[in-house]
Amino acid sequence: MNAWLIAAAVLAACGVGPCLLLGLRGSPEQRLAGLNLAATITSVVLLLLAQGFSRTSYTDLALDLAVLAPAGTLVFTRFLAGRQQ
């Protein structure tokens, strides 16, 4: 029980939650915006969890997500751009 874990819990519940609200309905573009922010918040939560569990090796998770999430988002934008042409 420490500040990092509390922050992680709050961010997971009140940060990712609203993103889901937008990400699970509406047009693909809207969902994508939700996904994008959710990825950022999840990375931060992963960082906080690493600190909260006092496991420095867990930071690799956030590092991995930080490089993969933009790739994932760009996949969608590439597809949606192709569709709009």
Binding site: V16, G23, P28, R31, G34, L35, A38, T42, L61, F76
Partner: peptide
């Protein structure tokens, strides 16, 4: 998109 979300939630 939702599956990508699911991936994030599962990772968490």
């Amino acid at each position: 998109v939702v599956l990508a979300f699911l991936g994030l939630c599962l990772a968490l």
